[in-house]
Design a protein around this nucleic acid. Structure first.
Lengths: 202, 202
DNA sequence: TTCTATTTATCACGGCTGTGATAAATAGAA
DNA sequence: TTCTATTTATCACAGCCGTGATAAATAGAA
């Protein structure tokens, strides 16, 4: 059996447990049960809890990152597009970070548990959580710079401030869509993002 | 001994534990130790874990709510103020929700653990978390409406969308300031909020 | 003082936790 | 087939958990 595939199976099981019962209940035994493995087998692939958690969090970040890169690849040559088309692509790219379907909703739910736990839980790598925040801001900043280069950005904006404003808005929208779906629906989530991008365009 | 004061002492101890070690480690024994009580004493004031958690979360919401109301009271007659003064008051009021000092930082840190756990943890009242989200939006909406009434709001804005945009921005800013202080400082947090309010003014 | 209600303090139980140690089963190469 | 390395499966241990039950101490009123 391919050990890489096995580890991914375990990570999938972990995500299901966290989504359903919360990170609190994601014990080694619970994850092993969910994966249909004996705890001994699980421990053969992950020496201890810390290793499993770090691997799982890294795997989640990789998945999101891969999806984003695939989006960028599919975009192709941007210079040949109209301003309207470019705006749509930008919105689509950032939407990749929002919990708009069940897959991304699960990801964000698990992610919230992870970053919240990273503040205090010894087995969860706080550095990984920090890197994801930095990564989001790097992406958002690149998008804003590109908008500015193509003249799509309203003049007189502070790049630092606008990067943080859009990044934190995305985080807040994700948080509320997942934790309070009856307060913030995915559709409204998109409308808010759209409104913000329109505002930046001026 | 005043039972009300005792319960508040316990809640304070709970907050300290959650801030330092996370909600995960806030067991009845740990909270009792932090409060300098025997677990038996603690259980005399709180029959079980669920009762303690609900009471603590309610207490936290009350504290924030009280601070907001006090702010509103101190504002007095708004109509006598200049536009600039009113803008400053608005920013100050909303800043009450941001983790700008150690007190509010602790509150937000505890709050994050609570709302995240509310999604799955049986002992934590999810309805309370929902109400706090609804409450924030009611406050933000009232502020936006008041701005519109005094002509301080840029025309052509969708109230629903702007309410959610500002609310989620506040949530995102709070989240990142607490979880990634090296990425988002309290000072930058304020600057971002200020920029957003300026944007709404037009 | 005596009685009563409040408050504080222990003990015990079953259950779950991560993990060390070790045995059993399986698969693949020689 | 035989040997070896991988994979799977158990057992045990110390530690923490919430909670039920009950005893001890304290305070305040009669």
């Amino acid at each position: 059996m391919d050990p890489v595939a096995r580890r991914n199976d375990v990570v999938d099981a972990l995500f299901r447990v966290v989504l359903r019962d919360g990170l609190q209940r994601a014990s080694l035994r619970a994850v092993a049960d969910e994966a249909g493995l004996n705890i001994g087998s699980l421990r053969h692939y992950f020496a201890n809890q810390q290793e499993l958690m770090s691997f799982a969090m890294q795997a989640m970040l990789d998945r999101v990152s891969d999806r984003l890169l695939r989006r960028v690849d599919e975009m192709g040559d941007v210079s040949a597009l109209t301003r309207e088309q470019r705006r749509s692509l930008t919105a689509g790219l950032l939407s990749e970070l929002l919990p708009l379907d069940e897959t991304r909703r699960a990801e964000v739910a698990v992610f919230i548990d992870f970053v919240a736990a990273a503040r205090t839980h010894p087995a969860i790598d706080a550095e990984l959580a920090r890197r994801s925040a930095v990564g989001t801001r790097a992406l958002v900043r690149r998008i804003l710079v590109r908008m500015e280069d193509t003249g799509a950005l309203r003049p007189g904006l502070d790049a630092d401030v606008e990067t943080e404003r859009l990044s934190s808005l995305l985080d807040g929208l994700s948080l509320n869509t997942v934790l309070h779906p009856e307060v913030l629906s995915p559709e409204k989530c998109v409308r808010v993002l759209q409104a913000h991008l329109d505002d930046l365009t001026g």
